[in-house]
């Protein structure tokens, strides 16, 4: 009986460690995805003059989790509540998606700040805002990669080790 309990504790701790490691591995990938979506948005705006709702729908079809649903969610919210300023909808959707994603606070800030400017000025200005947001995200991607290197393997082994420690202490 005690053995079974010990095995469960060890398993839980190991899984927790692996999950944490996975989050560190996912974060730079998701930021990367977000950056490339913003670059495509810039093309749509600067060269296509595509209206924002249409551009967001197009991008959401092409982008992977969680960026696709994020932009699709903004497009859907725009269609449903056109009276609400875009910046507000943009933030609401971001809050919803960020909870489920591996991305953290600094990316969220950069992304929502972009939402406050999007669609409100001419093409040159829009391009500047998009470039700025992409640059900020790139910096975050860089730190995310460093953190990944540092903590990913650490968490993977830490889980098992902490599990083992608890088991030893309990015995």
């Amino acid at each position: 009986m005690k053995l079974l309990g010990a095995a469960l504790v060890l398993l839980a701790a190991t899984l927790f460690g692996f999950f944490q490691a996975l989050q560190f591995a996912r974060r730079p990938r998701q930021i990367r995805e977000l950056i490339s979506a913003l670059q495509r948005l810039e093309t749509e705006i600067v060269y296509g003059s595509t209206p924002l709702p249409e551009a967001l729908r197009r991008l959401s079809a092409a982008a992977a989790e969680p960026v696709g649903p994020l932009l699709g969610g903004v497009a859907a919210a725009l269609a449903q509540r056109p009276q609400t300023p875009l910046g507000e909808l943009w933030r609401e959707e971001a809050e919803r998606v960020w909870k489920r994603s591996a991305m953290k606070e600094p990316e969220f800030e950069a992304f929502t700040r972009l939402g406050l400017a999007l669609g409100l000025s001419d093409r040159t200005d829009q391009a500047k805002h998009l470039k700025l947001a992409a640059a900020q995200l790139k910096a975050e991607e860089q730190t995310a990669r460093e953190e990944q290197k540092r903590y990913e393997t650490m968490w993977r082994s830490l889980g098992v080790l902490v599990g083992a420690l608890i088991v030893i202490l309990m015995y």
């Binding site: 209206p51 924002l52 709702p53 551009a55 300023p85 409100l120």
Partner: peptide, 15 residues
Amino acid sequence: AVLELLTNHSAYSYE
């Protein structure tokens, strides 16, 4: 908000 609605949230396409 009026400007956003008039330009369909895309002022850049109404330059």
